[in-house]
Amino acid sequence: MGYTLNFAAVWRSFDLLLEGLALSLALAFAAILIGAVIGLFTAFCLISKHGLARRPAGIYVTIIRNTPILVLVLFTYFALPQLGFRLGKIESFVFTLALYSGAYLAEVFRAGLLSIPAGLREAGLAIGLTEMQIRTSIIAPLMFRNVLPSLSSTIISLFKDTSLAAAIAVPELTFEARKINVETFRVIETWIVASCLYVVTCSILAALMRAVERRLSLPR
C-alpha cells in the first residue's frame, strides 16, 4: 500500500480538533436545551384531548421526523433569508437543530407521559392541586425519570448530528477534520483521530446520563 501511519501532522493540529469538538458540544447543548422546551410543550400537546393542540403538534413532529436533517439545515441557512429570515451560520444551525431536537424529544417525552398512571393525576386533583401544579410537581419529574434511557440515546444521536454543521462551514469537529485532511494529506490519521474524538465523547455522554439515572433512581 505504501502508506505509513504518521500522526505527527495531526497532533500538531490537535488543538484545532479540540476547538472543533468544543464547538460541537456547545451547538448540541444549546440546541438540545431549546429543543427540550419545545419537545416538552409539544409532548403535552400530543397527548391533549383537544384536536386544536394535538393536530398541529402531530404535523410538526411528522414533518421533521420524515425530512433529512441536511435538507433542513440547508433550507434554513440558504433559503429562509429569501423570506427575510437571515441568521449567522452558527445561529442558523442551532435554530435548525433545536427545531429538529424538539420533534424527536417530543416523541421521547410523549412515551414517558403515557407511562404515568392516571391515578397520580387524580390523587393530585383530590388534594386540590391545579392541572398546572400537577404537571410541574408530579407528572414532569416522573416522566423525566422514566425517559432517561431513551433520552440518553436521543441526546447522543443529536450530538452526532452537529457534524452536519460542517455543510454550512461552521468550524466544528467534522469541518476541522476535513480541513486538516485536505491541508496535511494525512488522511487515515485525521479520520481515525476525529472519529475517536466522537466515539469517546459519545461514551462520556452515555456514562454521564447513566450517572444521572442512578442519582435520580428512586429507592426501593
Binding site: G119, A126, G128, L142
Partner: peptide
C-alpha cells in the same frame, strides 16, 4: 376538591417523593 379528602384503591402515592413530601405537597401548594 380540597373540602373532601380521598383515598384510592391503588394508593396513588407520588413515587418520587418521600412519605412526608407526599403529605406536604398539598399543604404547601394548595
Amino acid at each position: 376538591r380540597a373540602l373532601t379528602g380521598m383515598a384510592f384503591q391503588q394508593f396513588n402515592l407520588f413515587p418520587h417523593m418521600s412519605a412526608a413530601r407526599n403529605v406536604m405537597l398539598g399543604l404547601m401548594k394548595v
